[in-house]
Amino acid sequence: MEHRRADFAAFYESARDDCLRAVTASLGSRQAAEEVVAEAFARAWARWPRVADHPSPRAWVVRTALNMHISWWRRWRGEVLTPDRYDQPDQDDPDAATLDPRMMAALRSLPLRQRQVVALRIFLDLDSKTTARTLGIAAGTVTAHLARATSALRAHLTSVTEEE
């Protein structure tokens, strides 16, 4: 048991921040991401022997966190963050102000799936095959999404830089 806990502790320490960053970038909300990522890690611990054998436990945590977040239909009632809310720092969150709203706006400009794909690539450094398995889509689709997302991000961020 102690060995198992130490194993999980090492995983948690090494993965916690990157998983949170990936989910924050995917959801566009640091606060919402923190809640679901913490819950996803708790679930990972609840079934650690199995998760430890996963090809990418970090991808498992991120996928679990994204799945826990309410589905896209929820946006109907404004529960999923709308663009207006995206850029507003959470007053209770000491870290919120440190995220440049322009970066969040650039991510927000991407379709959800592209955002997820690019977040997994940037923060978890997943290859296309693992990303595809994590998101339940074809590897070729991942490649296409990543290319479009990267191109759109570059264009968005470059235009912001030029405006300054």
Binding site: R16, D17, C19, L20, R21, T24, A25, R30, E34, V37, A38, F41, D95, T98, L99, D100, M103, I122, F123, L153
Partner: peptide, 10 residues
Amino acid sequence: VRTEFEPVRL
């Protein structure tokens, strides 16, 4: 992007 998200910590 990574640098921008550096302060985000669980």
